[in-house]
Design a protein around this nucleic acid. Structure first.
Lengths: 165, 165
DNA sequence: CCTTAACTTCACAAATTTCTGAAAGAAGCG
DNA sequence: CGCTTCTTTCAGAAATTTGTGAAGTTAAGG
């Protein structure tokens, strides 16, 4: 029996997790294929898979994998790795990296801030609507600072729990 | 000139903000119509509009407004208000409430946690994949606690900036 | 208790999104 | 330097999503 690492992996269990977790991501607003690819990587023991492996596991075409991976890389949820020898590419979840990307979502917050600031300007800072937006902008600014600190604390907390990587 | 509150509202400017901010929300994963309705409410001076007003401003059918508002209410991003006399209904953004709902997203985090826990169980807590997921679960647990505290601090900070409502 | 105004639900049409197959494009290896 | 292997791009088919019109439901007001 092919038992390269340590424990048996039941394909049924893996697939069940992949599809279940992907569904949650979809419900949270992520497109289907990136969700499935991401869940698949998360469920792999090495934390990395090749394009071919992903296509095989998820039963989709190389094109679909390509599109999903491009999206995930843009969002900093996976990292591309060229394997030195072969022209194969591997996609990897950096266990500590992906949830930082997922929660902070700096770019998104920044764009919201920007749009809201424009709203304050164009509607007038002294109007009730303008004031409401100004408050929201203040909230996002505050949040950005706090989030950075929370992530600091998380790293410390994580070392306590698991030891550093 | 109909100037009931205080300042002139340029319809062009309002519409420009509404569509621009809605586009940002769409990009972050929210459906189009809820995004537009929400942006419209945010841009109104009173922070509340009737179904008819929304339909008029956004040029959509009552049915579309109804669907969008149902979604927003479920997400706690707007609150329904029955006007005592008329059978009209008003939809309101509670300026301090909506961004809390938007950023914490308790329900979403809880479901992710649940799905990941199932992953740990079904793949095995001792496998590398299981360990990676366990770490992620720990992260979400940590985050929940921290977020609550951050929101506390925000409320204090907000009073400093704007005075209590 | 009937009328009327407002909101909701439902089935369908239109528009958008998503995935595939095929062809073109890189990059190692002989 | 050409062959081979893997990845990306592109056009189109299929499926999903989105918004409308029309009928249905609820509740105020006469």
């Amino acid at each position: 029996m092919a038992e390269s690492s340590a424990v048996e992996r039941d394909p049924k269990a893996v697939s069940s997790f992949v599809e279940g977790f992907a569904a949650q991501l979809v419900e949270a607003g992520m497109a289907r294929m990136p969700s499935r690819v991401f869940a698949a990587l998360l469920s792999s023991d090495s934390g990395a898979m090749t394009s071919a492996e992903l296509g095989e596991l998820l039963q989709v075409s190389p094109a679909a994998v390509s599109g999903a991976v491009r999206y995930l890389a843009q969002q900093h949820m996976v990292r591309r790795e060229r394997e030195p020898g072969s022209r194969r590419e591997r996609y990897r979840v950096h266990s500590d990296q992906w949830y930082e990307a997922l929660t902070s979502r700096d770019a998104v917050l920044k764009r919201w801030e920007h749009a809201l600031r424009e709203g304050v300007d164009s509607l007038g800072a002294e109007t009730p609507a303008g004031q409401r937006m100004a408050e929201t902008v203040a909230f996002f600014e505050f949040m950005e600072g706090e989030l950075a600190q929370v992530m600091e604390r998380w790293r410390a907390h994580r070392e306590e729990l698991f030891g550093q990587d």
